[in-house]
């Protein structure tokens, strides 16, 4: 059945099928962003809700227009003036990028080893990668506190071996944040990477070997380029959420750790400044829009290829 034929056949049920999830996402996903944008242009007020103007349609058109003129870019100006914000953005992107790189360096050998393992092992190995993904994020981050503390298990172990005399200070530093991000997001990178490595045609490598290509060169010239879609998908899946991460920098990081997710949280819950936290969210979204669109295009292309 061609696409045109299926289109002409779409009846009331077909349109309903599209409309229900579509409207749900419009109302609960897209509309909220417009509201965030609007509030980022508002001002703080000691009121409920704590911003001004509020746009009550009952007050009529005149009040609406007056409210419109009250909107301003003040909060954005504030974000550029206070070094805390742009430092948070820069350091979030930096921490996320470094963590993504480390995750790739650790994840590639794992995915590669899985794809090269005997076929009978693969379903079990795959499930073992997926399982931590199902167990709570919060729990997995929490588990590291007990390990990385000054009197924690890692320091106890290293002192027992006699490798160190003084406990290493890891918890509440950026190092702990890197460990937390790499650990939490490792399955996100391994899964797409494994999928593309498993599809790789082994005969290509054999051909290269037969023609006298050394293994490392064959790996570099054949395996790496062919696994690139998996690498890209995996890196996006790590990088994008890591930029806005809140739980990891909050629980494992220290006062030196500046990440925008945490800044937004503090601004919202501790300072009760909704307009500024909205402005922080808008800028964060602008930073992430390019990687998110790239990620979507890639996903769509892969989905179409599979069809």
């Amino acid at each position: 059945m061609s696409k045109a034929a299926s289109k002409s056949k779409r009846g009331l049920g077909g349109w309903g099928l599209i409309a229900v999830p579509y409207f749900w996402l419009l109302i609960f996903f897209l509309a909220p962003f417009l509201i965030v944008f609007k509030i980022s242009l508002s001002q703080v007020a000691v009121a409920i809700p704590p911003y001004f103007p509020t746009f009550d349609l009952a007050e009529g058109w005149q009040a609406f227009r007056e409210g419109l003129s009250e909107l301003s870019l003040e909060n954005y100006v504030w974000l550029t003036e206070d070094a805390l914000y742009w430092k948070s953005y820069v350091s979030s992107v930096y921490i996320a990028a470094v963590s993504t790189l480390i995750t790739l360096l650790i994840g590639y050998p794992i995915a590669y080893g899985m794809a090269r393992s005997p076929e009978a092992w693969r379903p079990t190995l795959l499930m073992l990668v997926i399982l931590p993904f199902w167990t709570s994020f919060l729990i997995r981050v929490y588990a590291w506190i007990g390990i990385l503390k000054n009197e924690g298990l890692l320091n106890q172990f290293l002192m027992m071996l006699g490798l160190i005399d003084e406990p290493l200070v890891i918890l509440n530093t950026n190092a702990a944040v890197y460990i937390g991000i790499v650990y939490s997001y490792l399955p996100f990178l391994v899964l797409p990477l494994y999928a593309s490595l498993e599809k790789l045609d082994g005969s290509l490598l054999e051909a290269a070997e037969d023609l006298g290509c050394p293994p490392w060169k064959a790996f570099w010239k054949i395996t790496v380029p062919l696994s690139l879609p998996g690498v890209i998908a995996g890196c996006f899946l790590v990088f994008i959420p890591a930029v806005g991460e809140f739980v990891i920098p909050d629980l494992l990081g220290g006062s030196e750790t500046l990440m925008i997710g945490k800044t937004l949280w503090v601004e919202f819950f501790n300072n009760r400044d909704w307009p500024v936290s909205s402005a922080v969210a808008v800028i964060l979204l602008l930073i992430l829009v390019i990687p998110i669109v790239l990620f979507q295009n890639q996903q769509q292309k892969m989905a179409e290829k599979n069809q």
């Binding site: 609960f28 965030v36 909205s278 979507q296």
Partner: peptide, 30 residues
């Protein structure tokens, strides 16, 4: 299944975006 329809790319965009969207943004906006 639905082939092409108006706003299809926006629809698939709204499906894929929340997968990577930072939680703080989703939470705040809702």
């Amino acid at each position: 299944r639905s082939g092409r329809f108006m706003g299809r790319s926006m629809f698939s965009g709204m499906i894929f975006a929340p997968l990577v969207m930072p939680e703080v943004i989703l939470g705040l906006s809702l």
